[in-house]
Amino acid sequence: MEFKFLDFDVIKGEEIDLYLVKTVPGNKEKNWVPAYHFDISLSGSPEPIGKIDIRIGYNENLYYGGHIGYSVNEEYRGNHYAAKAVLLLRKVAHDHELEKLVITCNPDNIASRKTCEYIGANLIAIVDVPEFNDMYQRGEKEKCIYEWVLC
């Protein structure tokens, strides 16, 4: 069955909004799943304060790379904007019938670990990244694996 992107041009929240920047189709050769990429903006402002993406599907790559990646510009950190953006992506995951998501981060990334805890994700393991994985080649040797069960 062919993947179909759904209409998520803007996802509005109370403090922040997500604006769709692009969609990326899956790549079977590289074992990549389809993804949505959003800018994070304060509500009522078109100016991005960060980025977030969500990958749709399940495969081994996502165990190490996660379903969701995010970053918030330094001057906007400390306001839980990454966590609030992750929570807004619940609708995307739900509409694609995903029941749980994996979110990963480096063990020394305390802010990202707090984001995972803030949304209610559970740390299931801290694992070594396999040598064949792209992240290992970039110098990332360990990952915290969080599981976020969507209700």
Rank of each mutant, 00 (worst) to 15 (best):
L62H: 07
P46D: 14
S43G: 05
E75S: 09
I124W: 12
L6W: 06
E117K: 02
A35E: 14
N106Y: 11
Y70T: 15
L89A: 03
A85D: 10
Y36T: 07
I56F: 04
V21S: 05
Y63K: 09
E15C: 04
G66S: 13
Y118N: 15
D39V: 07
K141E: 12
E47Y: 07
K12Q: 00
G66R: 05
Y136H: 15
K141W: 11
C151M: 08
V127W: 03
M1K: 05
E142F: 07
G139T: 05
K100S: 15
D128K: 14
S43K: 15
N133C: 07
I68E: 13
C116E: 06
V24W: 05
Y36G: 11
S112E: 15
Y63L: 05
L98I: 15
V24S: 10
S41K: 13
P130D: 06
M135D: 15
Y136A: 12
N61T: 12
I103T: 03
E60G: 06
I119H: 01
H67D: 13
V129Y: 04
Y63F: 15
G65T: 12
D95F: 08
K84G: 09
I11T: 02
K84V: 05
V72N: 02
D134E: 15
Y58A: 13
P107Q: 15
N73A: 05
L20C: 08
G44V: 04
A82N: 06
P25C: 06
R77F: 03
L101P: 14
E131M: 13
D39C: 06
Y36A: 03
T104L: 02
V86Q: 07
K22Q: 08
V127Q: 10
A35Q: 14
A111E: 05
G50L: 05
V24L: 10
L101R: 07
K51P: 02
V86L: 00
D95P: 04
V10D: 09
V149I: 08
E142N: 10
R77I: 01
N122D: 08
K143C: 00
R55F: 03
I40E: 10
H94R: 04
C151T: 10
E131Q: 14
N133R: 03
E29K: 11
N31T: 03
N27T: 00
S112V: 02
V92E: 11
C105G: 02
G50Y: 12
K91W: 01
V86Y: 01
V102Q: 02
V129N: 02
V92D: 13
E60K: 15
A35P: 09
V86P: 02
I124E: 14
C105P: 01
F132Q: 10
F3L: 11
M1I: 10
S45T: 10
Y64L: 01
N27S: 08
I54G: 00
E74H: 12
P107V: 14
N122P: 00
P34L: 08
F38S: 01
D108W: 15
C151K: 13
E15A: 02
N59S: 03
I11E: 00
T104C: 04
I103K: 08
V33W: 05
I49H: 07
D7F: 04
D39T: 10
E29P: 04
I124H: 08
W148D: 04
